[in-house]
Simulated scan of single mutants.
Amino acid sequence: MSIINDSQKIQILSDLVSINSVNGNEKEVAIYLSNLFKKYGIESKLIEVIPGRSNLIASIGHGKPVLGYAVHLDVVDIVDKSKWNSDPFTLTVKQGKLYGRGSVDMKSGVAAMAISLIELNANNCIQNGTLEFLATIGEEVGEPGSQYFYENGYMDNVDALVIGELSGYQVVHAHKGSMDMRLTSIGKTAHSSMPELGYNAIDPLIDLISNANRTFRSYNKSDAILGSFTFNTTIFNSGTQVNSIPENAIAEINARTIPEFDNLMVEDNMNTLIAKVNSMGANIKLDTYMSLKSINVTPSSSLAKLAQKVGKKYTGNNIPTSSIAPVTDASNLLRGKTDNFPFIAFGPGNETVHQINEYVEKEMYFNFIDIYQDIAKEYLS
């Protein structure tokens, strides 16, 4: 029996999109979900991870096995509001599409999993085991929320995990890792007419980046499932005025890692390159401020097969297994788990993720509400 009708499903997603949770305002989303769960008789708990930023956890049923439904509460920036065809923080319905920032990544997944929890509880569907709802902060920047859940034992009793990421109608079992590195070059300032009195912090940093590009790209490492290792400098800052030798320069680098060239290998290579340039007079330091490993678990787990079966019921088509390039909270939530751990990322989505005029198809959003209920009912039967 349906507890939440179609207009209410749209309203819940609209409420979530209206909360501007760009990289740090997740607590308001967590409070909204907590109140929504309370309205339908489900207890939840807000867990402050960073001052003003809270994870949320709720569960229904009891005992083993424990099936985890995981979501993240933050969204990426809108960049330029003037380029949107509608207010990015107002859910706009047009020709069967629901427009708004986070409508794909991943507030439709949040809403679908939350509604499924409410419906399952109201209809007393979970008779054998526990369905646990895990909502995290900061997935888009650093993943502190999922790191907290891992480090504080919240994943210890979880036997299988579904992340409601934007897979569309494919079951994702693998993704690349991600590293964020900051290089800081220290020099000495001087007037540009007398550069011999200073040390230009830019020069050795440019040399290092050039050598790093050449070194990492020459390896040409690739994985049959995940694709190629990538290495890119994405931020470079230095100097305060044009006629002064800069005393510092900072570059930030993102690497997307694979098992054949993992995070440790990247850091070891970077340290070797830094040692070489420092031996010639530079003073460059490395800060690896995010390091998330690649994920590649079995695509043939009972959970993956169940999701394929359930998905086909709603689409009429075979549901493939696949990998994605972006990193997810699975990098933290699966730490310590084996490659046979039943994990999938499966949620409403399309190619408009992080883009202007992001949207989710209304039919897909509605379908995933039912898909999540069917998966939980069968997995916990």
Rank of each mutant, 00 (worst) to 15 (best):
P348E: 03
P348Q: 02
I202M: 14
N23G: 08
V71R: 13
Q147D: 14
Y40A: 11
Q127D: 05
E143K: 02
I4G: 01
I50N: 10
Q147W: 11
E260S: 13
N128A: 05
I12Y: 13
V79L: 00
I10N: 07
E252M: 14
I3D: 13
H191C: 01
A122P: 05
G61M: 09
G281R: 06
I78N: 00
I118R: 02
L16S: 12
E43N: 05
Q127N: 10
D156G: 09
L264R: 13
L117W: 07
F216D: 05
G177W: 01
V158T: 13
G336E: 14
I10V: 14
N121Y: 10
N23L: 13
L303Q: 05
E247P: 02
E26D: 10
P320L: 07
I60E: 12
Q373Y: 06
G61F: 08
T272F: 15
A224D: 12
D15E: 15
N211M: 14
A255Q: 04
E165C: 09
S192C: 02
S59H: 06
I356C: 11
G349E: 01
K305L: 07
L120H: 07
R217A: 13
S294A: 11
D105M: 00
A58I: 08
G336C: 07
A307K: 10
I137C: 03
N128I: 00
H175M: 05
E26V: 11
D223W: 03
S210E: 15
T338Y: 03
G336M: 12
A251R: 08
N340G: 03
T315I: 06
Y69H: 07
A190R: 01
S238R: 10
A58Y: 11
M113K: 05
I115H: 02
I47G: 02
H62N: 15
I250C: 10
I50H: 05
A282P: 03
S54N: 15
N340T: 10
I115D: 07
I42Q: 14
E151F: 06
S21M: 04
S18A: 15
D77W: 02
V310N: 07
S116R: 08
G142W: 06
N121E: 01
L131G: 02
V110T: 03
G145S: 10
F343G: 07
R53H: 12
K221E: 01
E143W: 11
V353S: 02
F216P: 08
